[in-house]
Simulated scan of single mutants.
Amino acid sequence: MSRPSETVPEHVEIAVVGGGPVGALTALRLARAGRRVALIEARDPEAKLTDARAIALSWASLVAFADAGVQIPYAALTAIDTVHVSQQGSWGRTVLSRDDLDLPQLGAVVDYPALAEACQAALAAAGVAVLWRTRVTRVATLAAFARLTLSRDGAATPLTCRLAVLADGGELAEQLPGVTRRVHDYHQSALLAELRTERPHGGVAYERFSARGPLALLPHGEAFKLVWTRSPTEAEALRDEPSEQLIEQLDEALAGRFGKVLAVSGRAVFPLTLKQVNRTVSGRVALIGNAAQTMHPVAAQGLNLGVRDALGLVEAVAASADPGEAGVLRRYAGLRRLDSQAVVGFTHGLVSLFDGNGALMSLLRGAGMNLLDLLPPARRRFAGHLVFGVGTAR
Rank of each mutant, 00 (worst) to 15 (best):
V183Q: 08
L176A: 02
I55S: 02
P158E: 02
P242S: 09
A144I: 10
G334W: 09
I40V: 14
D111M: 11
Q249C: 10
A333R: 12
A118R: 06
A47E: 13
G202D: 15
S282K: 09
S97C: 03
I40N: 04
V227K: 00
P214S: 07
R379S: 08
A38L: 05
A359C: 05
F209R: 02
A383R: 04
V204Q: 01
G18K: 00
L101H: 05
D185Y: 00
R162S: 12
D309A: 12
L335C: 03
D322I: 02
A286M: 12
P73E: 00
R380F: 06
A31N: 07
G349E: 02
R133E: 15
R208S: 04
S265A: 14
L287F: 08
Q249K: 04
A54D: 13
R199S: 07
G107L: 13
Q245V: 07
V390H: 11
L148S: 11
Q341N: 09
V343K: 06
Q87M: 11
A118G: 08
P242H: 08
F354A: 02
L159R: 06
G358V: 02
D373L: 01
G203A: 04
L172H: 00
R135E: 15
A54R: 12
I14W: 04
A143C: 07
G391E: 00
T50Y: 07
G154A: 07
A155Q: 15
D67G: 13
V285T: 15
R162C: 09
Y112A: 12
E234G: 04
A33C: 03
E207W: 10
A316K: 12
L375W: 09
S340W: 10
L131F: 15
A164R: 11
V351M: 10
E244L: 09
V183W: 01
A15M: 10
A155T: 11
P177M: 04
A56W: 12
P113K: 00
G358M: 06
H385L: 03
E194R: 01
Q88W: 05
S231E: 00
F258N: 08
R279I: 09
G92M: 02
H220K: 08
A126K: 04
L375C: 13
L313V: 10
G127R: 06
E41A: 11
E41N: 00
D102Y: 07
I247Y: 00
G89E: 01
D240R: 08
D309G: 08
V390N: 06
N304D: 03
L303S: 14
R308N: 03
E6A: 14
P21N: 08
A125Y: 03
D322W: 07
D185A: 11
Q88H: 02
A144M: 11
I247N: 01
L101Y: 10
D44M: 12
G266I: 00
R381M: 07
V109Y: 10
T392E: 14
D100N: 10
W132E: 13
V269Y: 01
R53T: 09
A235G: 10
L250S: 02
E194I: 00
E46N: 06
S340F: 05
D99M: 07
V277W: 03
R32G: 13
